[in-house]
Write a protein that binds this DNA or RNA. Sequence first.
DNA 1: TTGCTTTACGAAAACGTGGTAGTGTTGAAA
DNA 2: TTTCAACACTACCACGTTTTCGTAAAGCAA
Lengths: 343, 343
Amino acid sequence: MKRKITLKQIAKELDVSISTVSKSLRNSLEIGEETRLKVQAFAKFYNYKPNNIALSLKNRKTKSIGIIIPEIVHYFFSTVINGIEQVANEYGYSVVICVSDDSFDKEVLNMEMLANGSIDGFIMSLSKETQYKGDFHHITEVINQGMPVVMFDRVTNDILCDKVIIDDKSAAYEAVQSLIDSGRKKIALVTTVDYVSVGKLRTDGYEKALLDNELPFNEDLIIKIEDVDTCEITISELLHARAFDAVFAVNELFAVTIIKTANKMGLKVPEDLAVIAFTDGIISKYSTPTITTVSQSGEKMGNKAAKMLIERIEAEEDDDEEHNENYITEVIETHLIKRESTD
Amino acid sequence: MKRKITLKQIAKELDVSISTVSKSLRNSLEIGEETRLKVQAFAKFYNYKPNNIALSLKNRKTKSIGIIIPEIVHYFFSTVINGIEQVANEYGYSVVICVSDDSFDKEVLNMEMLANGSIDGFIMSLSKETQYKGDFHHITEVINQGMPVVMFDRVTNDILCDKVIIDDKSAAYEAVQSLIDSGRKKIALVTTVDYVSVGKLRTDGYEKALLDNELPFNEDLIIKIEDVDTCEITISELLHARAFDAVFAVNELFAVTIIKTANKMGLKVPEDLAVIAFTDGIISKYSTPTITTVSQSGEKMGNKAAKMLIERIEAEEDDDEEHNENYITEVIETHLIKRESTD
DNA sequence: TTGCTTTACGAAAACGTGGTAGTGTTGAAA
DNA sequence: TTTCAACACTACCACGTTTTCGTAAAGCAA
């Protein structure tokens, strides 16, 4: 077992100074060719690679970015990570990932863990609990320290920073409109509890589509679900009453559960019940019937977020102290992917 | 914007030495109470946190572990990450994730990027290309530098290190046996190309189960699929010929595609065709019918792998030079989760 | 006063790197 | 012989921390 070799060891071995070694390896003209080649050969032989940690300390840059997300076993979030990773890699950055598990405390802890020099910037999506509490001090703190932050998907207006979102409201509008266009009149919205920002926006879009088409907006048709396990019961009751002929679900898990429930009751999808889901995940592609979805490209969001963050990071290098605060909110376009669950 | 405060700045501000500050904050008895409390108060006020990078440099530990996986938008791998993350967090480690995209070059690049001091150890699953090439020099190199490596799922015998796997062979055996027990005689195996180590082992288990039950082992019933898109065609041909009455698929994507193909042809699952899949992912739970699977708990694998790695890392602290090479291969148990696709 | 121990703190090295500034030697021009 | 530049290299600093060693001042006994 040979430990990684350092400049110092090379210097000692070749009986020159550390600076000579350093300069030789960076091909400085200060060093005579003979010495330079000798050093280079030696370094190559021992597979010298500069120590990243030392470099980070010196340059005050780690070339890594921190990602904080609520879940990782989650199609959408993992595609976002994928998108981030691609861009990060391209620019020579590593990504370090922390999962908040939708817990406020974990989110804070994770941010503190990374904020002490480990990374150059954050990309994050808020945990449910954080959104519920409305406490963002950990984020402001980090930003005040001059660390760039990009938020995506689950964002908040209370924090000024770059953001990448989709236009949840108009995407929901489009989905509901397409249900209306195919003749549906009683459209239910299956959503999560209010404090998750995206749930709220999608509800707004749903409502607007109804009103624009002069359809009644009926509170009873908004089904708020906190736990997916309770979904089935609620749904089946409403289906029994034939209370609706179409469903817009804010995620594909709800959608597939609804379809299964409907099937059990002998209802046909899409004939008796049309279903559209938000988030184009793997379930929608492979369920029976396949589910029409509003795609939100996690990969694109990740790409964009990473680009924004890295630009911020590298911009700070120049105008060291004065960071301009013209924050951008990027909106990623969505589109409806028609599949078998609608007609 | 206030940059993070350092020991030096505190020292200057309070007109004491850096060492005094450091010691005060670590509650050293060397420092008089008055000074100590003064420093602590000041540090608290300015929210002093030691710089992780500096600590890493000093202690030669980064308290972070590198994960290299082929894909991240992948149910199994993301559950493994989740498992790793849980344990890592518990022990105060961060995880930095690199995706090899099943490419050898990326795998090498990523490892080199992380190996220069950024992390204390690796947890990895080999890329397809690496397994195909059989070139593991990048891994041996890292190990030779004294960096602990734990491999999981897609491992190789050519590398000596800790490993976490499931008993693919006996798990496959169990699955096929259960098909036989329910009266199936012509059982097809839908698998990937050979060089992915797990595919090979599952094939072995399949074969053994057949032979043990004195069923013919027919090469034609082993369907090797490289690309999931070609799956449907191959399958439908064989189904037409009624060549088999049960399928053991090595992943759930194959399984669901098979079921859909069978349905299209008017065949009923499980009556006409029983299906079992490896990997208990999200598709199996939500497809129609739900799919009987061999569960391989990614979370448990991740937990175990992380524990093994961290133990190695922290063991090295003590017997600094001599690391004992009694590597362990941990086998995670699997079990059959019966769902609707079998009777 | 001298010699010894405590108390309370500071200086400096170390981790590994890279850049700036400096130093000493050589050879050639004045 | 002196002076100056070119050359080839070394010294030193900074990044932020911990830790070992050192030491000045104070206290106390003889």
